[in-house]
């Protein structure tokens, strides 16, 4: 199929940037979206044009590095997939495809479609861990049984890949889904209880500091999240936040 691409080009963080049009021919429906961009880049290089910079690494939907906003949706029109798992069979011959970076002031553009998501890391520094030493002198792994349901819910929350699609698709650029996934994972496990109160307060504070917006429960994040992280996690975090405040007095 033949496609018209409208891609955000921006030389560096200080450049103003704009949408630029490209045509691409003979795209196979079995290609992944990023493979389509690879082909485009090969053509651009041949023509002496700077190729389009975009982030990607694992290309199997787990590292969270890829990050495009495609036709108004984070990771494109397919559900429960990352951009690298999106395939061209989701598009038709003659389609125009808008490709933009994930946008939020907390995610400044570095170049073209590459954004800086280090704010996510900094939120984790504020409390996304359990304070155990890594010495191995811990108790036996089976000493505390954990109900399967809780273990499963904790796992589901822990599958967040930190891609930022939630922020990109939230009209408020809120990072609630991402933060709540980590808070939930630990809140659901006995190991995480000890520091639960400080964790939620510190992580929420940091999230605000980084300039993410406020959640108004629109729920777009859950729909666009490639890992299907549930809104229940946001609810749980709100609850944890309330009870942390009440308990701390």
């Amino acid at each position: 199929m033949n496609l018209k691409l409208k891609i955000w080009r921006q030389k560096d963080a200080n450049d103003k940037g704009s949408m630029v049009d490209y045509d691409i021919q003979n795209v196979s429906e079995h290609m992944s979206f990023l493979e389509m961009l690879d082909v485009l880049n090969e053509e651009l290089i041949e023509k002496g044009v700077d190729p389009v910079a975009f982030d990607h690494d694992c290309r199997e939907g787990i590292c969270g590095m890829c990050s495009l906003y495609i036709n108004g949706e984070a990771h494109g029109p397919d559900r429960r997939v990352t951009t690298c798992q999106l395939h061209m069979r989701k598009f038709k011959d003659g389609d125009t495809i808008y490709i933009e970076p994930f946008r939020a002031n907390a995610f400044p553009v570095v170049k073209d479609l590459v954004v800086d998501r280090s704010a996510f890391d900094r939120i984790q520094h504020a409390g996304g861990y359990i304070s155990v030493n890594t010495s191995g002198n811990t108790q036996d792994a089976n000493a505390i049984p954990i109900p399967k349901d809780n273990a499963d819910l904790a796992f589901d929350a822990a599958t967040c890949i930190g891609c930022g699609a939630c922020v990109a698709s939230c009209k408020n650029s809120s990072a609630m889904l991402y933060v709540s996934a980590k808070v939930s994972q630990f809140a659901l496990l006995p190991q995480g209880q000890v520091e639960a109160k400080d964790r939620v307060l510190n992580m929420v504070n940091k999230m605000d500091e980084e300039g993410f917006g406020n959640c108004t429960n629109t729920g777009a994040c859950e729909v666009q999240c490639p890992k299907g992280i549930s809104l229940d996690n946001i609810s749980r975090m709100n609850r944890e936040f309330l009870s942390a405040n009440i308990k701390k007095g």
Partner: peptide
């Protein structure tokens, strides 16, 4: 064996059976 103890203490959610054990 230490690895598993360590990771569980860190909150790694390994699969469990209905008895709550790994």
């Amino acid at each position: 064996t230490n690895i598993i103890d360590q990771c569980v203490a860190q909150g790694v959610p390994f699969a469990r059976d209905y008895g709550g054990l790994l």
